[in-house]
Design a protein around this nucleic acid. Structure first.
Length: 680
DNA sequence: GTAGGGTTAG
């Protein structure tokens, strides 16, 4: 290449072609030659645009970044060549590649250089920071800046902001913005509806989601399969099986084709609503039909089998998975390993591991195991877990960064959403979020950079399940040092182990650590904190945490309600527990067998046999199957009945009153298929 | 496919 100067006039076309051919290195050599050619003081700025964009679009982000770096080093602010549209495309490519640090770095350089974004540019950044990289503060700030610069936000801007609010666990704010948006004359489109419906379902506002869904019908925007899936899943998670099945039927009537995901949602939901037989037979039929199952379907069923201790069947299914070429991922492996350990079948772990011979998992498992054992043997520095105390919980309660209760902005007739403007007005970037509405980040499939974090999660879980908490802690310490991300799950696993052991201080240490170092606490973490407080008898504090969570727009799920109800019962505060039950029903959260057991038990314990009996009757009337816990609770109830020699049944008016508020339903999902033999 | 999309398992 050297010594053969290329005419700068044709350079662009030559470079274009080289890039299109995928000859990136050659293209960059040509660029070097061009730059070194005597007489060339400055190449056409557009040349750099096309190179950076072409490289970015071909996923050569490293090369694109290096050119960008060169521009920033060599030419500096004033003579920067990159044009605004190219910047936008470059940012989009970085966002799609999911490289947060690089995205932010480029964004910051562009700002330093005084590049002024247009509406498209703002939208890209708002979406990137708000929806993909978890910086709601910056997204809000950019939104405010648009207004300052008289750039009118479009529906697209609002859609991104809505999503960002939902993802940051601020559904109440999002819903205010949504209402204002509608009133301002914007017509919500498919993006808007999906964002709001998903956000509502995820924050367990299923009723709101259904209302929005109705609105969608009226406005003539056709719901797609994703909207249906989200709604069906939301209903099933709220234990509203009948409505979920009804919606599935409506979907079929509307000619929206069910996807594999729809079936996965249904299978999982049927299992979780006590319809194991229907779920299993649906699974078997789908398998026979062909392309209606994927590895996640298998995983869902395997997880359920493990939960009820059908380890032999779970193992067989994993083997079938392997045979059929479905990837057995770490979620499945971890669940099975933990299940085996719980059932005292730890020896079978070897059998499981044999099946990963051709899988990406095994070599990595082995490698990491060796590395980890070495790390654990090495002397440790730093201390973990740090001890916390209850004052810090109080601090958590006092520190309310959310503006859920903030006063509304005065009406502004020019604005589509005064509330949005208000939020933007008090934005501060990089502020840690209270919690996120999603679970801790889920492990990705094997391979790539994220793999180490996955392995930590797996191993921490396994060690915990083997009761080797100290090893799990060491592991945790070692790997926080390496700066791995995506460890929310490991955190929660560690937390709940501590709490189960009664080591609340340690759990609190983990939570603190988590807030400082990695991802924000999620709902599960709060759940663990509440559990811990309840166990310590700190009922009022636990109550305060739950209230705080509600205020921040967090959803108090059935588990947390149960925890609170049990804690109140244990403290003998029965009236408050019943009050909470009513509150639960008001929020559309259905009590489950755990709730009922707790209610029966607390009454039986203090000799309130009639009340205990009522709850037992209600539970059965409503179609909630008793479990071994109920059995134990009934023993103590019977003892009390004999001791007090009271006669039952009794007047059950109060119970009827409650029953009308329950969403429990008899089975209606009459799936016509062969009935499986398991999980009756 | 002009900027906005993502449901399901521990």
């Amino acid at each position: 290449m050297k010594g053969h100067p290329i005419d700068p006039a044709t350079s662009k076309s030559v470079l274009d072609k080289l890039l299109r051919l995928g000859m990136f290195d050659t293209a960059l050599e040509v660029l070097d030659d061009l730059e070194e050619q005597p007489g060339t003081t400055q190449l056409d700025p557009k040349l750099y645009d096309s190179i950076v964009v072409a490289l970015a679009k071909k996923n050569q982000l490293g090369l694109a970044l290096s050119i960008f770096q060169k521009l920033s080093d060599g030419r500096g602010g004033g003579s920067l060549s990159l044009g605004v549209p190219a910047c936008d495309d470059f940012l989009v490519a970085l966002r799609k590649a999911g490289v947060r640090d690089e995205f932010r770095w480029v964004f910051e350089r562009l700002r330093e250089w005084g590049i002024a974004f247009d509406e498209r540019g703002y939208n890209i950044c708002i979406h990137g920071f708000g929806c993909c990289f978890g910086d709601l503060g910056l997204a809000l700030k950019l939104f405010g800046e648009m207004k300052e610069r008289s750039i009118e936000p479009s529906l697209c801007t609002y859609n991104s902001m809505l999503r960002a609010l939902f993802l940051s666990g601020r559904p109440s704010d999002a819903l205010v913005v949504y209402e204002e948006l509608k009133a301002s004359g914007h017509r919500p489109d498919g993006f808007t509806y999906r964002t709001v419906i998903q956000g509502c379902c995820r924050s367990h506002r299923v009723d709101v989601a259904m209302m929005v869904f109705d609105g969608m019908h009226h406005s003539g925007v056709r719901p797609d399969v994703v909207v249906y899936n989200s709604l069906i899943d939301g209903l099933l998670k709220a234990r509203r099986l009948t409505e979920a099945c009804g919606l599935f039927e409506a979907m079929v009537r509307d000619d929206v084709k069910a996807s594999v995901c729809t079936y996965n949602v249904l299978i999982d939901g049927l299992f979780k609503n006590g319809r194991g037989v229907a779920a299993y037979s649906l699974f078997r039929d789908l398998k026979k039909k062909g392309p209606f199952v994927d590895s996640l379907t298998y995983s869902i069923v395997v997880v359920q089998l493990c939960k009820v201790g059908y380890m032999e069947d779970a193992l067989e299914l994993v083997e079938e998975m392997e045979r059929r070429g479905f990837v057995v991922n770490l979620v499945t492996v971890t669940t099975v390993l933990i299940g085996l350990h719980k059932s005292g079948m730890w020896d079978c772990a070897e059998r499981l591991m044999r099946h990963f011979r051709n899988n990406v998992v095994l070599p990595n498992v082995v490698r990491w195991k060796t590395d980890m054992e070495a790390s654990i043997r090495a002397p440790q520095d730093g201390s973990f877990p740090s001890r916390g105390d209850l004052r810090e919980v109080s601090r958590l309660i006092d520190d309310d960064p959310s503006s859920e209760n903030a006063t509304r902005a005065p009406p502004d007739e020019w604005s589509s959403s005064p509330h949005m403007d208000h939020l933007a007005g008090e934005a501060s970037e990089g502020r840690p979020q209270a919690f996120i509405a999603r679970r801790g980040r889920r492990v990705a499939d094997g391979g790539g950079r994220s793999f180490d974090a996955d392995m930590i999660n797996t191993y921490v879980s396994i060690f915990i399940s083997k009761g080797k908490l100290n090893v799990a802690c060491k592991l945790f310490e070692v790997f926080t040092g390496t700066g791995s991300e995506a460890m929310g799950y490991a955190y929660n696993a560690l937390m709940s182990s501590f709490v189960k052991q009664g080591s609340f201080a340690e759990a609190w240490g983990v939570l603190k650590h988590m807030g400082e170092r990695l991802c924000p606490a999620d709902i599960a973490t709060y759940s663990v904190v509440v559990h811990g407080l309840g166990k310590l008898g700190e009922v009022d504090l636990a109550k305060a945490v739950v209230e705080q969570l509600t205020k921040r727009g967090g959803y108090v799920d059935v588990v947390m309600h149960n925890t609170m109800i049990r804690a109140l019962g244990k403290a003998g505060r029965i009236e408050e527990a019943e009050e909470l039950l009513k509150e639960m029903l008001r929020c559309g959260v259905n009590p489950d067998v755990i709730t009922f057991n707790a209610l029966i038990e607390m009454h039986a314990k203090v000799g309130r046999v009639k009340e205990a009996y009522r709850f037992l009757k209600l539970m059965l009337d409503v179609g909630c199957s008793p479990n071994h816990g109920t059995d134990a609770v009934m023993d103590s109830l019977l003892m009390q009945i004999e001791k007090l020699s009271v006669s039952i049944p009794l007047d059950s008016r109060r119970v009827d009153d409650l029953e009308s508020n329950l969403n429990w339903t008899r089975p209606t999902f009459n799936y016509q298929g062969r009935v499986g033999v398991m999980l009756v």
